[in-house]
Design a protein around this nucleic acid. Structure first.
Lengths: 200, 200
DNA sequence: GACTCGTTGTACCGATCGGTACAATCTTCC
DNA sequence: GGAAGATTGTACCGATCGGTACAACGAGTC
């Protein structure tokens, strides 16, 4: 998942990919709900409505390929809706507000889990280590770069970016743990202010 | 896991509990490494050195009881080493520094995962929902109370406490995802400053 | 030493795991 | 319509899942 392929990925016309998209979406929800190990083929066939035959025809690599493609799909979404806008933004305040809005939308205001974070914590981390690291690394790079353009020095930009990413992850964990999506909403609000604060 | 039993739990003399403690410790590491679903009995027997016979003699309730007792053990550790000191502290600054130091120690400076957070994200959340919520709720109560005593109003104390807990969780996730324990260390440093900052 | 009773290893249980084989079916193109 | 190729449901595979049964073993007690 290199930076170079990012642009083309976003503009790709999905000829016969529409239904595959639907399958990937369903797969994503199964993995989110049960984790990589917990997502049994029975659960997967139920969620997708596809039999094993179709499933292994679509994903010859089995469960690993399914999860891998789901992660790639997540990555693409963030690339198009979060990272690219951050990189191309001229107005930092607007860009940050847009990022927060995008994150809030993607995670259903705290009612949806971060699949990448979930995979990172589980035993499957090693299998998908590259995709996991890449997801956060590219987010980090895009946001830190924007913060630097907005006037922060490199060190401050790095620190604030790290803070932003872990705040989002932590808010998702805590919101889920305490079954209180308000935690996520409040964290995002607070985060906006912290990111937009003047250099210290 | 009620608040009332907290005190006695800490002072309990473990007559024949010493070896059970060791087993629970090993169990904890297996669950941390593989999650609840992923921790198969084979992995468990390997990690504990106990056969199934001994295991089901010690834990008639099977895997669920094992995980339940491990969570209780985690809870006890935090009760004794984190929550109780926070409640009984007279000097807020010292208490917060002690909390951060305890957290850093427990999570091996970012190289160890939060089992409660992991369970919260997984499918086993519902099974252990009460223990999970309780863990964070008691931490929240103890810290918020201390912050109020240090001069913050209720609202600010709540906000900062929520921020502290999710920062710790998020830092653990991100540190693991990016395989960089430095993220956790930096987050804890930053958190100390934020908690000790004067009322806004 | 014999009796007790908690502890342990081991064989085994049905269910389910991820994955494969393959015949039946559906499309597509001529 | 019919040949060709992709797509699908279903039966099946060995391995492993969490859990049980039980006989062998162990430390105490008399």
């Amino acid at each position: 998942m290199s930076r170079a392929s990012a642009k083309t990925r976003c503009d790709t016309v999905l000829k016969r990919g529409a239904e595959r998209r639907d399958v990937l979406r369903a797969l994503g929800e199964v993995f989110r709900a049960h984790g990589y190990e917990g997502a049994s083929l029975t659960l997967i066939t139920d969620a997708t409505g596809l039999g094993k035959g179709s499933l292994y025809n679509l994903f010859p690599g089995g469960k690993e390929q399914m999860a891998s493609e789901v992660l790639a799909e997540v990555d693409t979404w963030f690339e198009c809706n979060i990272y690219a806008p951050l990189r191309e933004a001229s107005d930092p305040a607007r860009a940050i507000a847009a990022m927060i809005a995008g994150v809030d939308q993607y995670f259903h205001s705290g009612n949806r889990i971060c699949l990448v974070g979930l995979v990172a914590l589980g035993a499957a981390r090693d299998t998908f280590a590259e995709a996991v690291d890449d997801y956060f690394a590219r987010w980090h790079a895009a946001l830190a770069q924007l913060l630097q353009r907005s006037g922060l020095n490199r060190r401050q930009a790095q620190r604030r970016t790290e803070d932003a990413l872990l705040t989002i992850q932590g808010a998702l964990v805590l919101a889920r743990a305490r079954n209180d999506a308000g935690i996520f909403r409040r964290a995002l609000n607070n985060l906006t202010a912290r990111l937009l604060a003047p250099p210290e």
